[in-house]
């Protein structure tokens, strides 16, 4: 690996300073040479960006608040006209600027958010009595073509979020409404969502949906340049692992789980972990994914041992503590070894 050919970053230069190779003066001068210490033109661009960005956001917010103030008194056609005009403007901007530019992609994202607002206005104005899931499902279907042509991972994330929301709302509103859903939702959307996910069948269905999305993303990532960023699959994986934890812990602590989904949850976890370790160690090298899988494994194995061995005395506590330390240390060691192997092969 050509370490001297790598870009000069603050952390690399600081490492040389801390190891005594660079003096304090040399370190500060190195930051200037590397362009990390901003010169006058960098400060100019920064102030330009900061003031223009903040100013534009506040101005836009002011316009939105103006419409909000007048909203109740506006005729329904005027309301539709405002939203549809804004939608047309964002689409025109996206077409004009092109999806290769950041501004064009930002306009596409705006054009993908506005249909949802339009549908909400439609439902509110005409009181169609449709189920909430219908709004999100229709929204997702409308923006699917945008996602295909948008060249933006953010659009795919929006589509995935809408699909997840549609599924949760259909399940809890139509298919199998939980007993205390209204009360739980009254405590807040996050509480409502958490309560909804206590239904293991729903949780496992969501996991299947998000794993399918993750697999699709990873399959295409190697071939499509704008899918090369890692934040979207990492978010999807975190969502999968977070949702999976509930049913698996349920399976561990419930002596006689009646639901098949709960019985299968540990198998699903083993399958996802095994496939994930293979895929992110050998196929799409990603240390973050391996670390996330390792952390989930530590929690689940610890929970399993707590329940199975019933260690409630001092010795049991010490054993569990040392076991957690051992598992975490082993995971950290394995991850470092993997990172070294990748560095050596690079």
């Amino acid at each position: 690996m050509d370490v001297l050919g790598q870009p000069a970053t603050t952390s690399r230069l600081r490492h040389l300073y801390r190891s005594g190779i660079l003096s304090a003066g040399a370190y500060e001068r190195a930051l200037e040479i590397a362009g990390i210490t901003p010169d006058a033109s960098a400060w100019r661009r920064f102030l330009d960006w900061l003031l223009a960005g903040l100013g534009a956001v506040l101005l836009l917010a002011g316009i939105l608040f103006f419409f909000a103030y007048n909203w109740a008194d506006m005729h329904r056609f005027a309301k539709f006209a405002v939203l549809e005009a804004t939608l047309l403007v964002t689409v025109a901007l996206a077409w004009r600027l092109g999806t290769d530019s950041h501004a064009g992609r930002a306009a596409m994202i705006g054009a993908s958010v506005l249909p949802g607002v339009l549908l909400a206005l439609y439902g509110q104005t005409y009181q169609t009595g449709a189920d909430p899931y219908g709004l999100f499902l229709t929204w997702a279907l409308l923006i699917a073509p945008w996602a295909l042509i948008g060249r933006s991972a953010a659009l795919w994330l929006l589509l995935l979020v809408l699909c997840n929301l549609s599924l949760v709302l259909w399940w809890t509103g139509v298919y199998r409404p939980p007993e205390w859903q209204g009360f739980a939702q009254g405590l807040g959307p996050m509480f409502g969502l958490g309560y909804a996910l206590s239904d293991a069948d729903l949780a496992m269905t969501l996991i299947a949906l998000n794993v399918a999305a993750l697999l699709s993303y990873e399959a295409l990532a190697g071939r499509i340049e704008w899918l090369s960023s890692r934040w979207m699959p990492r978010l999807a994986m975190l969502a999968v692992l977070a949702i999976l934890l509930g049913p698996v812990l349920h399976a561990i602590f419930d002596k006689h789980p009646d639901r098949l989904s709960v019985q299968l949850a540990p198998l699903a976890w083993l399958g996802i972990t095994a496939a994930g370790v293979w895929a992110y160690r050998n196929w799409r090298r990603d240390l973050f994914m391996l670390a996330a899988l390792a952390m989930e494994g530590i929690v689940i194995v610890t929970a399993f041992l707590v329940e199975t061995l019933r260690l409630q005395d001092a010795g049991g506590m010490l054993f569990l503590s040392l076991l957690v330390v051992l598992m975490t240390g082993a995971a950290a060691y394995w991850l470092r070894l993997t990172a070294h192997k990748w560095e050596a092969e690079a």
Binding site: V3, L16, M295, T328, L335
Partner: peptide
């Protein structure tokens, strides 16, 4: 610089910290 390349990423430190708390 070769040693610096092997520095611990933040999510690994987070994992280690989480294990320590547990």
């Amino acid at each position: 610089l070769g040693n610096a390349a092997l520095a611990t990423p933040w999510y690994l430190r987070f994992m280690v910290g989480f294990g320590a708390w547990l």
